[in-house]
C-alpha cells in the first residue's frame, strides 16, 4: 500500500534508520563487529519481537520468570492466561513502559532492556498500544486525539491540536479515522462517543503513524459483546492489511483462536503454552483461563 501522505509527512522517519539495518546480506557474518550492540543481528526469517529469559518482579513479588518467545513479522500472537497472571505486565515490558527485572527484549531489531530513553523513544515511533480503556483525552476532539498518534515522529506545538496542525498531518489523521469508519465524527469531543466508537478512535490513533508492531491489551474487554466483536474484526482487518505484527490479549478463548496465528499462554509465572492457533482447540485453552 503506497502512502504518499506519510511520505510527505515524514521525510526523516526513524523507520528508515532501522530499515537500513534490516536488509539481510547473505554470507555477511560480521557478528557484532561494526554494528552497535543494540542491533539484532539479522537472520532470516526476521523476528519483530524476540524475548529471552524475561523475568519480572514487583518488589519481592514474582510475576513471571524466564519467559522466551519470538514473533515473526506480520504475525498476530494471542497471549492468554488467567486474570492476574501478568499478561498486561508482560505487554508493558515489551514496549519498555516498565523495566524488566532480568532477561532481554528485542523489538524491531533493537534491544530495549537496557536502552537509553532517547533510543526507546525512537523505537516507539514504530510501535503502538491499544488498551482495554480507550485512553482518549476526553476534552479534545476526535481528530486531535488521532493526530496525537503522530507525536512520535512529529514533535512540537503544531501537532498538539488539529486546529494548528499542518495539512498533511490532518489528512493522515482523517484518513486513519476513515479506516475505522468514523471520519464523520472528526470534530466531536472524544467524551461524547460511545464505548465502541471510542475504541475505534483509539485504534485509529494507534495506526495513524503506520506502526510495525502493535500491542493490544484486551482491546474489547470494556465493550458489550456485539461492539467488542466489531472492534476485534476491524482491528485485525486493518493490521492484516498493513502487515503489522501484533501481540494481543483477550478474555475470550475464541478471539485467541480466531485472530491469532499463534497462541502463547502464561500460567503459574511461566510460559506454559506456545503453539499455532490451528493446532489448538477451545478446550485446550480453557485450562489456561482459570
Amino acid at each position: 500500500m503506497t502512502d504518499p501522505v506519510n511520505e510527505i509527512l515524514a521525510p526523516s522517519r526513524v523507520s528508515d534508520r532501522a530499515g537500513a539495518q534490516r536488509v539481510p546480506v547473505s554470507g555477511d557474518v560480521q557478528a557484532g563487529s561494526a554494528a552497535a550492540p543494540v542491533v539484532l543481528q539479522d537472520a532470516m526469517p526476521r523476528h519483530d519481537v524476540s524475548v529471552q529469559g524475561l523475568t519480572k518482579n514487583f518488589g519481592q513479588t514474582p510475576i513471571f520468570a524466564d519467559v522466551s518467545f519470538r514473533l515473526l513479522r506480520g504475525e498476530a500472537v494471542a497471549l492468554v492466561g488467567a486474570n492476574g497472571t501478568g499478561k498486561s505486565t508482560l505487554l508493558r515490558c515489551l514496549l519498555g513502559l516498565i523495566p524488566a527485572s532480568s532477561g532481554t527484549v528485542e523489538v524491531l531489531g533493537r534491544r530495549i532492556t537496557d536502552a537509553r530513553s532517547a533510543d526507546l523513544r525512537v523505537l516507539r515511533c514504530r510501535t503502538g498500544l491499544v488498551s482495554q480503556k480507550h485512553n482518549l483525552v476526553p476534552r479534545l476532539s476526535v481528530l486531535s486525539n488521532v493526530l496525537h498518534g503522530l507525536l512520535g515522529s512529529h514533535s512540537g506545538p503544531r501537532y498538539w491540536s488539529q486546529s494548528f496542525a499542518p495539512l498533511p498531518a490532518r489528512r493522515a489523521a482523517i484518513d486513519a479515522l476513515e479506516q475505522v469508519g468514523l471520519a464523520n465524527l472528526a470534530s466531536r469531543r472524544a467524551d461524547r462517543l460511545s464505548g465502541g466508537q471510542s475504541q475505534r478512535v483509539a485504534i485509529a490513533r494507534a495506526l495513524v503513524a503506520k506502526p510495525q508492531l502493535l500491542i493490544a491489551d484486551e482491546p474489547c474487554a470494556s465493550l458489550d459483546p456485539a461492539a467488542g466483536e466489531e472492534v476485534m474484526a476491524l482491528f485485525f482487518k486493518l493490521v492484516r492489511e498493513n502487515g503489522v505484527t501484533v501481540v494481543f490479549t483477550s478474555h475470550h478463548v475464541d478471539h485467541a483462536l480466531d485472530y491469532g496465528d499463534r497462541v502463547i499462554g502464561l500460567a503459574g509465572g511461566k510460559l506454559a503454552l506456545d503453539a499455532t492457533a490451528a493446532s489448538l482447540t477451545a478446550s485446550d485453552l480453557r485450562g489456561l483461563y482459570d
Binding site: R124, C125, V130, S131, L140, H148, L151, W160
Partner: peptide
C-alpha cells in the same frame, strides 16, 4: 492511561504533557 498510550507511540514528555496531562487537568 492517555499518557501511556502516547508514550507507546514514541512521543516526548513535553508533548505528552501538553496533549494528555494538561487537557485532563484543565477542569
Amino acid at each position: 492511561g492517555p499518557s501511556e498510550a502516547l508514550t507507546a507511540t514514541g512521543a516526548r514528555r513535553l508533548d505528552i504533557t501538553a496533549c494528555a496531562t494538561l487537557p485532563a487537568a484543565a477542569p
